[in-house]
Simulated scan of single mutants.
Amino acid sequence: MSNYQEVLLQAQSLTPEEQIRLIEELSSLIRQQVTMTPKPKRSILELRGLGKEIWNGIDAQEYVNQERDSWNG
């Protein structure tokens, strides 16, 4: 039996009040771990090329011309 299963069985034997207390304490421990773990910095360059398949077969200048024409009504 895994540790998780053992703990789950033990938690099921607790009263509802004890289960709620256990959840609150586990949540607190997890929040502390999450806030102590530094998040990696992200770069805008990671988005480079995202969605490029949408533009396959479309002439850029023709697209710009159509957009400009739509501004005038």
Rank of each mutant, 00 (worst) to 15 (best):
S27E: 14
V7D: 00
A11G: 05
L45D: 12
W71M: 06
S28A: 10
L50C: 08
E6K: 15
D69H: 02
Q61N: 09
S13F: 07
G57L: 01
L45N: 09
E24T: 12
N65G: 04
N56M: 06
L22Y: 02
A60W: 06
M36Y: 11
L29H: 10
N56V: 09
S70C: 00
S13V: 03
E18Q: 15
N72M: 00
M36I: 09
S13Y: 07
E25G: 00
Y63R: 00
Q12E: 12
N65W: 00
S13N: 15
Q19Y: 03
A60E: 15
E17A: 15
S2D: 15
W71L: 10
E6I: 14
V7R: 05
Q61G: 02
Q61S: 08
T35K: 12
P40A: 11
S27M: 11
N3A: 11
E67F: 02
L50R: 10
Q66P: 03
E46R: 02
Q10A: 14
E62L: 00
R48A: 15
L26C: 09
N3Q: 10
E67L: 07
M1K: 10
E24Q: 15
E62D: 15
I20Y: 05
S70M: 01
Q33E: 03
K41H: 10
L14A: 02
N65C: 06
S27N: 15
Q33G: 04
G57E: 07
I20H: 07
L8T: 10
I23C: 07
K41T: 06
P38V: 03
M1L: 12
I30M: 06
T35A: 04
L22K: 00
I44A: 13
L50Q: 13
E24W: 05
L22D: 01
E18V: 08
K39Q: 12
Y4K: 07
N65S: 13
S27H: 08
Q5R: 08
L8Y: 13
M36R: 14
K39N: 04
D69L: 03
Y4R: 09
S2H: 02
I58Q: 08
P40M: 06
N65T: 08
I54C: 07
E53G: 02
A60G: 07
Q12L: 09
I23P: 01
I30V: 13
G73N: 09
L8V: 13
I23N: 02
Q10D: 14
R42H: 12
Y4V: 08
Q5S: 13
L29K: 07
D59R: 00
Q5D: 14
G57S: 03
A11K: 13
E24C: 09
E46I: 02
L50N: 11
R21G: 11
G73M: 10
T37I: 03
L14W: 08
M36K: 15
E18Y: 10
V64E: 11
E53M: 10
I20M: 11
R48F: 08
R31K: 12
N3H: 12
I30S: 04
E17I: 13
S43E: 12
W55M: 12
P40R: 14
R42L: 10
L29S: 13
Q12S: 07
L47D: 01
R48N: 09
E46P: 00
M1Q: 08
